[in-house]
Structures are given as structure tokens and as C-alpha cells.
Design a protein around this nucleic acid. Sequence first.
DNA 1: ATGGTCGTTGCACGA
Length: 256
Amino acid sequence: MRIATWNVNSLKARLPRVEEWLADVQPDVLCMQETKLADDAFPALTFASLGYESAHHGQGQWNGVAILSRVGLAEVVPNFADGGPADPEARIITALCGGVRVSSVYVPNGRSLDHEHYQYKLRWMAQLRRHVAALSSPEDQVVVTGDFNIAPTDIDVHDPKKLIGATHVSDPERAELAALCDWGLVDLFRQHHVDDKLYSWWDYRAGDFHQGRGMRIDLVLGTKSVAERCTFSVVDRNARKGQSPSDHAPVIADLS
DNA sequence: ATGGTCGTTGCACGA
């Protein structure tokens, strides 16, 4: 089973690239973020014609998350399901795909450490932990994947010194991510690339992609039983090239 | 050292 995550930065703007990529890479499950669509504008028929069932949790204009699957799509849950307050923004959707409980997540950016949005980001990560624990146990096959807007360690950013005091690398948000992993999730990409400086997002500006200035903030986390099945993981940098790319590249993990 | 580019929308803001 090939599972992938991709922040597409507007599915309306990116649909041709996504269609081409699906045909090329043939994932069994694709989690998307930042569709920026209302549910009634989501191109479910286009994906159906390519062999994928789909579920979308959107709000239009901003945010929006989706799951495509050709190995079954059941028990779809938009938003958090931990019994706490619903997120007013469309940032998480969960479904059972091929025996794996998959969540597609778009963690709030945070904007700056002194911004209210940063507190929202920390609260969001804490609720994500409760959501995952409410729906599953660490012994289950669980994948939590998407745009975390958190670089787990300093090797996940091009120049850590330039980011001191910035979001994506601060201790409190890294602690939230570590706490999520402590529940029983493993960074599948790092299993296969122990110390590679490889990124999944590059600013559109200043030629950052071609200069290699990026961050690894798109993660595929899996429980132990999933991690044991994971034979291969890669960032598909090719999808960041060419005409009208997203600023994120897809991350792929193959399960035996 | 600074600014730069997209996508949304509407003439600015989020990433």
C-alpha cells in the first residue's frame, strides 16, 4: 500500500498537476491539505474517474483537507472527534483506508511566536493527540499525515540559525509533536533517511527551491505496526518542479 | 542584508 501526503496549495489551481501525479505515482491513498475549496466544489467525480473514492472537509477559500483512496474509504470523520470543541477551521479529516486509520492534517501555521495564532497551533496539536487517542490505540494500524508546519529537529531546516525565534522550530511546538509521537507514532521518512537534509516545502520566493533552502514539515507518522511494514519513503521533489507547482512536494511511504 | 512569489480576493493578507 502506497500512502502519500501533499499540501496542494489550492486544489482548483493544482488539479491538473494532481491528476498527472496520481497517474504517474499511483498512490493507494493520498492525503491532501489546503484544498481551499467548499465541499460542493470538490472534484470528487474527477477522482472517481481515476479510480479513487474521496472524502473532503472544506470551508472554501482557506484550509480544507481531503483523503483519496482506492483501497476502501470508511468511517469518515471530518473535524476532531475527541469530544472537545469542533475546530471552526477545516484542518483534519480521518477515515479507515485498507485497514489503516488515516488522518489528513493541516496544522495551523502559527504566524509568529507572539501571535494568538501560535497559541491556536499549540492547542490544536494537543487536541490532535486527544483525537488520535480517542479513535485508536497505539497497537492499531494508524497513520497521521499532512502539513504539520513543524520541523521536528534542526536537521529538518536548511539554516537553523536564521530561524531562531521563528515558528516551525520553536521548543513548545516541537514538544507538542514529540508528545504526539510519544503516544506511539514514528516519523516514517526518518526510518529510511536517518540524517539526510531533505525538505518538503520551499518558499516560492528568491529561488529557494533551486538553492535548496527548505524545511521538512510534511510528515507521515505511523504506529509501530505501520512502521514495521514501511519499506520505502521519499519526498517527490519532481512535483515541486515545472509549471505552476505547489510550494510543497508530496511525501510518499510504501507499506508491505 | 534585503526582498523576492503565489493563491485567495478585491484594491490586502496569509503562507
